[in-house]
Design a protein around this nucleic acid. Structure first.
Lengths: 163, 163
DNA sequence: GTTGAAAAATTCCGCCG
DNA sequence: CGGCGGAATTTTTCAAC
């Protein structure tokens, strides 16, 4: 895996700012970091071309859209070699927003977001449990999300809007 | 909890598009949905004011920034009443990117992102295990992330870039 | 990495259905 | 009242240095 892209401190600072507020104008970031707007643009193009920046996403409040329940699923497989097949089936369930192949107790760790407890029950019973290769699942319902933030990639404790 | 904001199908479609690509120009979205650019702007302002849109984030590839290990932590507390205190301490650890108070086996479910196995070991041993009130933890290392996507809020199976 | 000018997008406001 | 359309402002983009 060739590593043809050097990331310096300026790149990390730009990313750190945009991870928190992707709408911040390049001109503002430039002022904050004491470089020109063009430099931010060139750096971002490099980071996008290198695949380091994967996309720009809107963060929404699921509960305000009627999605009140999120839950984590620890999934036991009949055989761990079935991982690919099961992951493909999980991807077909729109309520599944994340899935990881993991070490430890479970083979797959998935996150699902549902409207209410009935919806959750339906997804688990009618969709997840029907997937071939899943032995059983353990469900952890999230009662409260206390932390949700991007990874921290700079030395600074905080680097956010306003310059 | 007053519910003073009605979300219609147009709002949901706009959100669905921007959740996948927050950089998409309002003018493009307007064309795709057969309304004017001004309408997109007004709707987005409403959605932001209502707190439905919480922010705009850059998605980055952690491994390309040298963060190769992500892991899930199932945390057992001495007493579940300690949740607030423990959550506050977890928030001080920069490597902790998510934490949920959950039903089921664990009291808290956390996600951490680290550079390598040594870094992970240091975070677990020197930071997490030192927190008062944590009885023990179970660690699930993610070997592969197969699904990671926004919640699905429209009837359409897909609604993305290009109009 | 910078500058400055052209192109594009966002934002705002008066008008219409 | 909610959507429309154009004009003013701001931002992005891209050349040459």
């Amino acid at each position: 895996m060739a590593k043809g892209t050097e990331i310096d401190d300026l790149d990390r600072k730009i990313l750190s700012i945009l991870m928190r507020n992707a709408k911040k104008p390049y001109t503002d970031i430039a002022k904050q970091l004491f470089v020109s707007g063009g430099t931010i643009h060139v750096r971002m193009k490099k980071l996008e071309d290198a695949g380091i920046v994967k996309g720009y996403h809107l963060a929404v409040d699921p509960s305000k859209l009627g999605y009140d329940i999120s839950a984590f699923l620890g999934i036991y497989l009949d055989k761990s070699s079935l991982y690919e097949d099961v992951a493909r089936e999980l991807a077909k369930i729109p309520e599944v927003v994340a899935a990881h192949y993991t070490t430890g107790l479970y083979s797959i760790f998935a996150t699902i977001v549902c409207r209410d407890t009935k919806h959750l029950r339906d997804v688990l019973h009618d969709k997840v449990q029907k997937i071939n290769g899943i032995q059983r699942t353990e469900t952890f319902i999230s009662l409260q999300e206390s932390i949700n933030r991007p990874i921290h990639i700079t030395d600074e404790p905080f680097l956010d809007e306003e310059g």
